[in-house]
Simulated scan of single mutants.
Amino acid sequence: MSESTGSLPNPSEYEWSFEQHGGVGVWFMQGWRGFADEDLDAVSTHYRERGSRADIEATLAVFGDDTNLPRETQEYMAEAWSENGEYTDVDKVGFVSEGTTAMAVKSKMDIPDADIESFGDLDAAVEWAQG
């Protein structure tokens, strides 16, 4: 189930998508290559604004197999996504990937008052986020 409204970036225009599973917002970044570019700015804005709504209690970012995180992207994410996670005021922030991407992103996050976790499986991540 996708959602885009007025001021939110429309996921269909970028290399990422959004779904909601109960109170969990899930951002799929499969097509994203990991650079601090227009796609990353758009998903960051969408995450911040959509994740802060009352119907989202936890968030997950799912990275595709092709995601590559050069140092400048990791630095951007550490700063911007930590701020975004704090802004949303959610209880749990998770990252999902089959490889080490989720663990690498998790290790850079600093979000006070939120549990942060990485997963290799989306179902396990959604279960954790809903628990």
Score class of each variant (00 low, 15 high):
Trp27Leu: 14
Gln30Ser: 05
Gln30Val: 05
Trp32Thr: 05
Trp32Val: 02
Trp32Pro: 07
Arg33Trp: 13
Arg33Ser: 11
Gly34Val: 02
Gly34Glu: 05
Ala36Pro: 15
Ala36Glu: 14
Asp37Val: 11
Asp39Lys: 09
Asp39Arg: 04
Leu40Met: 12
Asp41Tyr: 15
Asp41Leu: 14
Asp41Gly: 15
Ala42Glu: 08
Ala42Gly: 00
Ala42Trp: 06
Val43Pro: 00
His46Asp: 09
His46Tyr: 07
His46Glu: 05
Tyr47Gly: 01
Tyr47Met: 10
Arg48Trp: 08
Glu49Ser: 11
Gly51Met: 05
Gly51Ala: 07
Gly51Glu: 08
Gly51Ile: 07
Arg53Trp: 09
Ala58Ile: 03
Ala58Leu: 10
Thr59Asp: 15
Leu60Tyr: 01
Leu60Pro: 02
Leu60Val: 10
Phe63Pro: 01
Gly64Arg: 01
Leu69His: 04
Glu72Gly: 09
Thr73Asp: 10
Tyr76Cys: 14
Tyr76Thr: 05
Met77Ile: 14
Glu79His: 11
Ala80Glu: 15
Gly85Ala: 12
Gly85Pro: 01
Glu86Ala: 05
Tyr87Asp: 03
Thr88Glu: 04
Thr88Met: 08
Asp89Pro: 09
Asp89Met: 12
Val90Cys: 12
Val90Met: 02
Val90Pro: 00
Val90Phe: 01
Val90Asp: 00
Asp91Val: 11
Lys92Leu: 07
Gly94His: 01
Phe95Trp: 05
Phe95Tyr: 04
Val96His: 04
Ser97Cys: 11
Glu98Ser: 12
Gly99Arg: 13
Gly99Lys: 08
Gly99Ile: 02
Thr100Asn: 12
Thr100Ile: 14
Thr101Pro: 03
Ala104Ile: 13
Ala104Glu: 08
Val105Lys: 14
Lys106Asn: 01
Lys108Gln: 15
Lys108Pro: 00
Met109Tyr: 04
Met109Ile: 08
Met109Pro: 02
Asp110Asn: 09
Pro112Gly: 09
Asp113Lys: 03
Asp113Arg: 10
Ala114Lys: 02
Ala114Val: 10
Gly120Phe: 13
Asp121Lys: 01
Asp121Arg: 07
Asp121Asn: 08
Leu122Ile: 12
Leu122Pro: 00
Asp123His: 06
Ala125Ser: 04
Trp128Thr: 02
